[in-house]
Amino acid sequence: MHDLEVLAAILILGVTCYAMRAGGYVLAGSLRDDGVVARFLRLAPGNLFVAFIVGGCLSGGLAGLVGTLVAIAAMAINNREWAALGAGFGAALMASALGM
């Protein structure tokens, strides 16, 4: 993969993410809190996360599924991202070593 292609992708994604951060602030005057678009945006993240996780588990095999479930459980219990990632990865590593 060419360096310039990667650099261009990073810049485009950087601009996109900044546009999302600044966009809400700039457009706030014309976005109604009770409008359909605002409601869709408010409800979208959780559903997108679920769909993403399903796709990831599908490609990650059984070890990936075990690691992901442990990460979700650890996050629900202690609400520490780094601890949840550590627990999830440890569980996936163990599952992989057991041949899952």
Binding site: G46, I72, L85, A92
Partner: peptide, 12 residues
């Protein structure tokens, strides 16, 4: 696996 786990930690 970690990309999926990153998102999984946001789920709760």
């Amino acid at each position: 696996l970690l990309p999926t786990m990153f998102i999984a930690t946001l789920l709760p």
